[in-house]
């Protein structure tokens, strides 16, 4: 038999046999003895290979593939640190934004021009209650002007250089503000007490002022606009001579937390008219 015919016959036999097997076998047939024997022989090898492959994969996954994890961990730590710093900065911006919004509202309330300034320092030795702000005479600030925040009165500008001003705080005895007790309308002069409180002096002995009353600016000193919160009465007593009542006042502003102040740019002589209309007074 020629070789080509033999090859064709073998191919036809194999293809035909294959087709015969495919079409003759049912889908849920039982394995025959030949298949059983084959599986029995191959199973130990298959199990060994599977186990080895599992071990190799485990080693790869737990050790070899973790070679870069240290680097990744370092990178993630750095990223976490960076994100924390960014978060801190953003929170700072948010707080600043909130504060500046309050200042904008306050500025809108005033009918006088005002200037926002940043607190840049405090008294060198600590004997005086003073803040330094980053605006000076070049910005229009002059001694005697009022410094405020949204919560109330901060103090009075005590001195200026072209770029820096000195603000005497309400807790310094060098400050004197004409104030009223909001409930009773009693007038008094508020000044610092070399402590955390201020003292409201020269109130009428018949005054009905009591602890908890709110103290506001009267607007009569020509420095502070009328009605700004100054503080709350903590204690009322007679003065040393017994001629007047005086009250310890807790400031409305937490002076240790101030970062910016709004300086009211106004001339001395009262705040009862609009700026620019002084000639028509």
């Amino acid at each position: 038999m020629p070789r080509s015919i033999r090859d064709i016959a073998v191919i036809l036999l194999l293809v035909g046999g294959g087709l015969l097997l495919i079409f003759s076998s049912s889908e849920d047939r039982q394995a025959g003895p030949v298949e059983g024997l084959l599986h029995a022989v191959l199973r130990p090898f298959q199990q060994s290979v599977t186990a080895i492959r599992s071990r190799v994969t485990g080693v790869w996954r737990d050790y070899v593939a973790l070679v870069g994890v240290r680097e990744e961990n370092r990178r993630l730590k750095e990223e976490t640190k960076r994100l924390r710093q960014e978060r801190s900065v953003l929170l700072g911006y948010e707080r600043e934004n909130r504060r500046l919004k309050k200042f904008l509202n306050l500025k809108a309330q005033y009918e006088f021009p005002s200037l926002l300034a940043q607190v840049i320092g405090e008294d060198a030795i600590g004997w005086y209650k003073v803040y330094f702000i980053n605006r000076g005479s070049e910005d229009g600030i002059a001694p005697g002007m009022a410094a405020t925040v949204a919560e109330g009165v901060v103090g009075r500008v005590a001195g200026t250089t072209p770029s820096i001003s000195k603000v005497l705080l309400v807790t310094d005895p060098g400050v004197a503000i004409d104030c009223r007790v909001a409930r009773t309308r009693d007038r008094g002069v508020l000044s610092g007490y070399l402590d955390k409180e201020c003292i409201l002096r020269y109130m009428d002995l018949r005054s009905q002022v009591k602890a908890g009353d709110e103290v506001v600016t009267s607007g009569l000193d020509g420095v502070f606009p009328k009605g700004l919160p100054v503080g709350t009465v903590k204690q009322v007593r007679r003065d040393a001579q017994g001629l007047f009542l005086e009250a310890l006042v807790t400031p409305a502003v937490n002076l240790s937390e101030i970062e910016e102040v709004l300086v009211v740019l106004g001339k001395r002589g009262g705040y009862d008219i609009q700026p620019g209309l002084e000639g028509k007074r």
């Binding site: 005895p173 060098g174 000044s191 610092g192 007490y193 070399l194 402590d195």
Partner: peptide, 9 residues
């Protein structure tokens, strides 16, 4: 320069 509220504090 003016009264300072002298006391124990």
């Amino acid at each position: 320069r003016g009264p300072i509220g002298f006391g124990w504090h």
